[in-house]
């Protein structure tokens, strides 16, 4: 009779976490920053069709790194949840906080109950009427939620980028300042050696608090090329 090996719960969790971290570290980075008029998302993403940044609802945006099919699944679920909520109650009743909670519960359940955890890290950002009301939630593969202030970096080079952001980002920066900073940091730390990223390697979008109703808008590549020139 063969005896199954005993593996301690600590070891199982650790193995799963290592597995998820490795998967996430392989991906290109995403930076989410607050600027004076809203929230800016910048991702290194050469694909035109497979987005890392998306609109969830009027004031809520979504950014993710890791395995595409997994975060796409979460994104679609988030859009469904938000639209369902807004349709059942009112558009104002859809909040980033409740969406972040739903994601946290979902990721936590998947992490503990399935053999393979999701290899994703996501940010749920909600733009407020004023900068003080802006919210940035960072969610990791095990369902942990962190309420971030000002900026978040995710992906392979998240740590070095976060360190630079902590000294270079400050409140009240303009869109252009934030965009230049993000593109510079992604180019410097996001890959092998220093690179200069062009519009074709970037995906950029904003939640603009000055827009009525749907605040999310993408900065299309031709326009982005003009801005970066």
């Amino acid at each position: 009779m063969s005896m199954p090996f005993y593996v301690s719960p600590e070891q199982i969790i650790k193995d799963k976490a290592d597995y998820a971290r490795k998967g996430i570290a392989r991906g290109r980075s995403v930076i989410v920053q607050q600027f004076d008029q809203g929230i800016l998302f910048v991702a290194e993403n050469p694909s035109r069709a497979l987005h890392k940044i998306s609109e969830i609802y009027d004031r809520i945006g979504f950014a993710a790194v890791g395995k595409y099919n997994e975060f796409e699944n979460l994104r679609v679920a988030g859009v469904r949840l938000a639209d369902m909520r807004g349709y059942s109650y009112d558009r104002r009743d859809v909040s980033g906080r409740s969406l972040a909670n739903a994601y946290a519960q979902t990721l936590g359940t998947i992490f503990t109950e399935t053999p393979k955890p999701y290899e994703v890290e996501i940010v749920v950002a909600e733009v407020g009427a004023v900068a003080d009301d802006d919210q940035l939630y960072r969610l990791t593969f095990d369902g942990s939620v962190a309420d971030e202030q000002g900026y978040v970096a995710m992906g392979g080079s998240a740590e070095t980028i976060s360190q630079s952001l902590s000294t270079q980002w400050h409140e009240g920066m303009t869109l252009m300042e934030c965009l230049r900073l993000a593109v510079d940091l992604l180019g410097r730390f996001g890959g092998e050696g220093e690179r200069v990223l062009g519009a074709n390697e970037l995906e950029v979008a904003v939640l603009d608090r000055t827009r009525p109703r749907r605040t999310f808008s993408r900065i299309a590549r031709p326009r982005l090329a003009e801005l970066l020139a």
Binding site: A77, M84, S98, A102, Q105, T109
Partner: peptide, 27 residues
């Protein structure tokens, strides 16, 4: 229907068409 502090139900994560009305009809 309350959504607060609950994991997303399986129906939200299931692959489906992009129609909100169809989603509503099933959930």
């Amino acid at each position: 229907m309350s959504f607060e502090f609950r994991a997303l139900p399986a129906a939200f994560l299931a692959p489906r068409s992009a129609s909100f009305a169809d989603f509503l009809a099933s959930t």
